[in-house]
Amino acid sequence: MVGIVIVSHSVKIAEGVKELALQMARKDQLIIAAGGTDTGDIGSDPMKIQAAIEAADKGDGVAVFADLGSAVMSVGLAKEMIDPQLAQRVCLANAPIVEGAIAGAVEAAMGSPLEKVLETAYGARNMEKQ
């Protein structure tokens, strides 16, 4: 099963997105929230993200969802710091963090491969709201 990592500047956003996504996906879907800095303040922490990615991978890869700015950069840096073999099956989803993570988690919970999870998450960009 593809693991999911949620990276936000805010601990609360990361936890909240995880909560929402888990409500939709199977309860045993692996979703790890990596929000805020190591002291829980607003920001992002590449080390925390690295640990989350390593914990989320069960061999089928990890789809990472991030909000903006340093969160995106910190994911890039975390990918450089992890084992290169693992890094090959870790991908930052090109998707909005809330809609993308929910769609991606549902897809992952169905046992779909990483490519499919990322594709579904990408599709969440087009969710019409008007």
Binding site: T37, D38, D41, I42, G43, S44, D45, P46, M47, G69, S70, M73, S74, G76, L77
Partner: peptide, 9 residues
């Protein structure tokens, strides 16, 4: 590991 903002990475 300690900056927290974009300047860290």
């Amino acid at each position: 590991s300690s900056v927290g903002g974009a300047a860290g990475p």
